[in-house]
Nucleic acid binder design. Structure first.
Lengths: 145, 145
DNA sequence: CTTGATTATTATCATATATAACAATATCAC
DNA sequence: GTGATATTGTTATATATGATAATAATCAAG
């Protein structure tokens, strides 16, 4: 069975990403959290008071798709919102959220270690550089401040 | 704005994959075809008479999700099905499908060139090896014949 | 011939992502 | 200050992707 797709780096990139995300989702499942939510926890944890719009830029997701995620995380008492001005909310972790962040970080680091472990050592530095070259500063968006 | 996610290869892998697939989808849009369909065309083109179940294995997608895709591609006169036995169908490209495959290959190669072009030359070989290490022979599935 | 595995289909559900319209507010030019 | 414009967040909707379960038909192994 001949498979020309296997010669294509772009195809390999997609397959690698899907395989990786499946494994990561599996590791997060016991925590009852999804990987997008885990990213949000991490960003709020390292940027207390961050606004939703900052998250949408950093994660490159749509405002409209973030709203229900934030609402649900607030409902689960993982994050709290405080008014910054008439338009925007500042996001912070609750105590529950901080505990969840600890667990999320552990799972994330375990997952990253697993991932790196699958790559021959000699390839690792170039892999990182290559991956970042493929998405960093996407399209026309000049980095905001 | 501090972003710990940027230090994570796994996160970079996902972002790279998403950015890449968005660009590829854009390149395929004029052809009126989606990237999963493009992969199917390529595999049928290089394996005339291939069965749906072979496709599901090679693409690692669910039988149930392939069925409507194949039906739609048959409806668009891109592929034709002939009975192999009482259970399975053999898939082949129609003339229209072969022309589409030509266009798809051109777009695919252009996309792959664009992708590789974004990666510093010194990193390319390691990137390919690394990516394949991350998905090749996923989990428990021993390669079928 | 019976049992069990394979192939394909149908239906359903969850998730991820994209777009458009809207309300409220902030910012900027004047 | 006032008016035009941009930002922020929300709601509703559409599409794409992916997973699961149940069913029917058929093949393969003993």
């Amino acid at each position: 069975m001949h498979d020309p797709l296997r010669t294509l780096p772009g195809y390999g990139l997609r397959r690698a990403s899907v395989a990786m995300m499946n494994r990561f989702s599996e590791m997060l499942r016991p925590l009852g959290i999804k990987y997008t939510e885990s990213s949000i926890l991490i960003l709020i944890g390292s940027n207390p008071g961050i606004r939703q719009s900052d998250l949408t830029h950093m994660l490159d997701i749509q405002r409209a798709n973030l709203t229900p995620i934030i609402a649900q995380m607030e409902g689960r008492n993982l994050i709290m919102r405080t008014r910054i001005d008439g338009r925007s909310w500042g996001l912070d972790l609750t105590e529950t959220g901080k505990e969840m962040l600890d667990a999320v970080w552990k799972a994330t680091l375990a997952h990253e270690a697993d991932l790196i472990g699958r790559v021959p050592e000699a390839c690792r530095p170039a892999l990182l550089i290559g991956l970042n070259a493929l998405w960093d500063e996407p399209e026309g968006s000049a980095e905001k401040a």
